[in-house]
Simulated assay, not measured.
Amino acid sequence: MSIIYTPEQIQIRDLVRRVAAERVAPRANEIDATAEYPQDMFLLLKELGLFSLPFPEEYGGMGSMVTACLAIEELGRVCYNTAYLLLVQWVPFVAILASGSEEQRRRYLPGLSTGDVRGALALTEPQSGSDVAGIKTKAERRGDSYVITGSKSWCTNAGLADFILVAAKTGDSGSRGNIGLFLMETDRAGFELGRKEDKMGARGVPSWQLHFDDVELPLSSRIGGAETGFKVVMEALNHSRPIIGARGVGLAQGALDHSINFVKDRHAFGKSVADFQGVRWMLADMAIQIEASRHLVYAAAAAVDRGVRGNDLAQMAAVAKCHATDTAMRVATDAVQLFGASGISNEFPINRYFRDAKVLQIIEGTNQIQRNIISRNLLSDR
């Protein structure tokens, strides 16, 4: 089935594509090299109103995950980090919209939609990345409050966020599961930013370690029930995985674009490198895999827009995320090969695509975890 976009979606895609080429691409190498947060790119996205795209109309958005993925793809085609600025707003949004109280939605969603408020999700811990149910950070009920103790790692955007969604165990310290999800403003006493990670890729949007030393939160900070945080997080990840897939598609397309331009301009053995059949077949294989990933990603995004939930969405989202990000890594690897010695030089941008592609195979659930989800659904009795 071909991908069919509405006229409004095409208009937004073309606008983002033009802005990406004219204003984002010239900054991409510098953002990666300096590993400094691109505040100018954040303000650009805010000016264009792109943060609101997946939000319901009541919050100024289109309520469209497909349109959100189009924006992510076009930005990711030239700059992984600028596309990432959208994603870090959207993961907290999905959790709050799906399971937050009316008061929580009114308090946080309008600001997230406009970019006036920045959020983050604190899930990963030093001893438990993929094993979400095994987290150790503790949320202890004390009267009318919860007290959070523990540590997190790899919390992207934490140092810039106004609030953080914190996953913490509400059951016995030795138990698995029983996880709550809590909204915490970053000015809370007892909360401390730890070391900023020095990352191989995704360098422009920093990730931090976090420490919670008896951070007291009101009962109203909890999203959903005391022990439903795991389900809230999993559903939020299901919604965000098509966006990760769109980043993979955009990154792969950008790597292919650079490869085509490079081989057309290079000559060897008396002819254009683009005339060698082996090179042409590499380019063809790259294009085939990108197009397959694109269809999987937008099928999953369209499922979100149709209201698909639970295992059905989890399956589509896992397939899309896994295939698209594996494709990004494969295409980026082949692109480096086509560039030859230039591919490993910082003088050319293709090594940035290679490093960023590897990150995509790990974040929002490693691709091994995606394969676990897919196979579990295949083998389950529905």
Rank of each mutant, 00 (worst) to 15 (best):
D144L: 07
W154M: 12
G76Q: 05
Q39N: 02
G100E: 10
I223C: 08
I223W: 09
G340Q: 06
M200I: 15
W208G: 00
M62C: 01
A292E: 15
N346E: 11
A120D: 06
N377L: 15
R107D: 15
I350M: 05
L251H: 10
G180E: 07
G194K: 13
Y84M: 15
H267I: 11
R106W: 08
S259W: 08
L53A: 06
D285W: 11
Y59H: 13
C69I: 01
A268R: 12
V19R: 14
V232I: 15
D334C: 09
F42N: 02
S99P: 00
A335T: 14
G224D: 06
N238M: 00
W154F: 13
M282D: 12
N238P: 00
D172T: 11
D381K: 13
R330G: 00
L160A: 12
P110N: 11
V19E: 10
D334P: 00
E364D: 13
K196M: 15
Y59P: 04
K152W: 09
F51N: 11
R376F: 11
R18A: 13
A161R: 03
R18P: 01
D213N: 15
D213T: 14
S113D: 06
N261L: 13
M184Y: 03
D257I: 09
P349F: 02
R294P: 00
N81V: 03
M184W: 00
E140R: 14
E347G: 14
Q361H: 01
R203M: 02
N261D: 15
A328T: 04
P206S: 01
A301L: 04
K152G: 05
K358M: 14
G76F: 04
P54I: 04
W281V: 13
A202D: 13
F339A: 03
A158M: 05
A314G: 12
R176G: 09
H258L: 15
T124L: 01
T149A: 07
E57Y: 04
L379A: 14
L283G: 12
S151K: 14
S259I: 07
N29T: 11
F212P: 01
L109T: 10
R309N: 02
G201K: 04
I373M: 08
N81L: 07
F276V: 07
L112V: 06
A320S: 08
S375W: 12
M282C: 12
A252L: 08
G204R: 02
A139T: 09
G194D: 07
Q315N: 12
R247V: 13
G159F: 03
V273N: 00
Q289D: 15
Q361Y: 00
E185M: 06
I148W: 06
P110M: 10
S293M: 03
R371L: 14
E30N: 11
P54R: 04
T228A: 12
T67Y: 01
G365K: 04
L44W: 07
S380A: 14
L70Y: 02
T34Q: 14
H239D: 01
K321F: 01
D144K: 13
Q11C: 13
E125R: 05
